[in-house]
């Protein structure tokens, strides 16, 4: 796998099983540093210390959903790229998520062996030039 231009991924999902799988898929297999959070509040609290380079946010969480969490991150000055995880993808939603500031959307279920490659690909499509990441 080509070396990704980013390393630290903050993952927010209310489902502990998914958090575990994503952590294995991106950490052990993908070679990223993954910070797993079980809610929006937890993710906001963890961001300062972890200093993520990419936000991977589940869209449907109880309380604060993905869109709301991204808005909070932006309010808090966390401007790094974000990718949404969602079970529901249709073109209209895709456009809505992009308008909210996401660089891409990943469907659920996902193949854990391909997950690292998928997010790297999304990053590269958005930032083709080297060192273009903010």
């Amino acid at each position: 796998m080509a070396k990704a231009p980013f390393k630290r991924i903050l993952h927010a999902d209310d489902q502990p099983d998914i958090r575990g799988i994503v952590k294995l898929a991106l950490g052990k297999i993908g070679g990223f540093d993954v910070c797993s959070c079980s809610s929006g509040e937890e993710a906001l609290a963890a961001a300062a210390a972890f200093a993520p380079e990419l936000l991977l946010i589940d869209m449907s969480m109880p309380g604060m959903d993905g869109m709301a969490l991204l808005a909070k991150f932006r309010e808090a000055g966390v401007a790094v790229p974000a990718i949404f995880f969602t079970a529901r993808i249709n073109p209209a939603d895709r456009e809505r998520y992009r308008a909210a500031g996401a660089i891409g959307t990943l469907p659920k279920p996902f193949d854990p062996l391909k997950l690292g490659r998928q997010i790297t690909q999304i990053w590269e499509e958005n930032f083709p030039a080297k060192d273009a990441a903010p």
Binding site: I18, V22, A25, K28, I29, P109, F110, P112
Partner: peptide, 22 residues
């Protein structure tokens, strides 16, 4: 369908990791 997805994602993910040699 949506309710099926969550457990399915966990199942598929776990099996994928096992098969991938994690």
């Amino acid at each position: 369908s949506h309710e099926l997805r969550t457990p399915l994602t966990a199942m598929r993910g776990s099996l994928g990791l096992l098969a991938g040699g994690v």
